[in-house]
């Protein structure tokens, strides 16, 4: 049984490489019971989306009140 520390490490690594079957299985097991790690997993996707938007200039297209650009 993996703990949260190892689970977040695996989740992070899954952004760089495909996890093995046994890694994915143990991950699924932990995530089924741990909402904090589930949130962490979702946030990794959000972080990536944010970082790429930033690199593409989203920060300078943004408006003060959350108005859409396109």
């Amino acid at each position: 049984m993996r703990n949260c520390r190892e689970t977040t490490r695996l989740l992070s690594e899954s952004q760089e490489r495909e996890l093995t079957l046994s890694e994915r299985t143990s991950l699924k097991f932990h995530l089924a019971m741990c909402s904090a790690c589930r949130n962490f997993g979702k946030q990794l996707g959000t972080l990536r989306q944010i970082a790429r938007s930033y690199a593409h200039g989203a920060a300078d297209r943004a408006e003060g009140g959350g108005k859409r650009d396109k």
């Binding site: 930033y54 943004a62 408006e63 003060g64």
Partner: peptide, 9 residues
């Protein structure tokens, strides 16, 4: 919404 908000950046 955060992505479109300059305060967020």
């Amino acid at each position: 919404a955060a992505i479109h908000d300059k305060h967020f950046w």
